[in-house]
Structure formats: C-alpha cells, structure tokens
C-alpha cells in the first residue's frame, strides 16, 4: 500500500516536473495537472494510510483522519478552477501569438 502510493506520487511528480519544463503550453498545463494529482495524493498520505476505516469516530473500530480528506477536496476544487482558467489564457495566447510556444514565438531553428 505505502509502496504503491509512494511510487504513484513519485511517477506523477517526475512526469509533472518534466512536462512543466517543456516549451509547449499544452505540455505545461498537463504537467501542472499531474503535479496537482501528486500533491493531492501526498496530502492524503499525510493523514496516514488506513484501509476500510471511516473518517468518523465510531466506538472501537478506530478512524482515519478526516482533515486531510477535507483539505484534498478543497485542493481539488481550487486546482480544477485554476486549470480551467489557465486553459483559457493558453488559448488566448495561442490566438494572439499564433504559436503554442510558452514565450509566444518559435525559437530560431
């Protein structure tokens, strides 16, 4: 369980950073999305991993930490909104500059 989650976060972060550093705007936005998935999983893991436990207090059965789950929900919503906004800016930039390069002009060949 821990290993799977760790590898997932690692792969997502690695791919995200790689894409974030690429010169095309679409790659940048996919990179940011992957990074935000990684961050969401990470927040979740900070509440400690537990299987088959509800995030509410019940007698005797133990509980998982509800706070990181609430934080993740907030982070997902905010991430979703900002990604959508970034997409709009990306398209506007494509319209103005006629290229999908992040600097708005193609590098000299």
């Amino acid at each position: 369980m821990e290993l799977v989650l760790t590898i997932a976060i690692g792969v997502l972060t690695g791919s995200g950073i790689w894409l974030l550093l690429r010169p095309r705007t679409f790659q940048v936005i996919i990179g940011l999305s992957l990074l935000s998935y990684a961050v969401n999983l990470f927040i979740f893991a900070m509440g400690r991993l537990a299987v088959d436990v509800a995030p509410v207090l019940e007698d005797g059965t133990g509980n998982s930490d509800p706070l990181p789950q609430a934080l993740v929900l907030t982070a997902i919503v905010i991430g979703f909104a900002t990604t959508a906004l970034f997409l709009v800016v990306l398209l506007a930039n494509r319209g103005f500059s006629g290229t999908d390069h992040v600097d708005g002009r193609e590098p000299p060949p």
Partner: peptide
C-alpha cells in the same frame, strides 16, 4: 503573454 508566465 506575461499573464501566462505569471499564472504558471
């Protein structure tokens, strides 16, 4: 252009 860098 500047806004996109800022947002990223």
């Amino acid at each position: 252009q500047a806004g996109m860098h800022y947002i990223a």
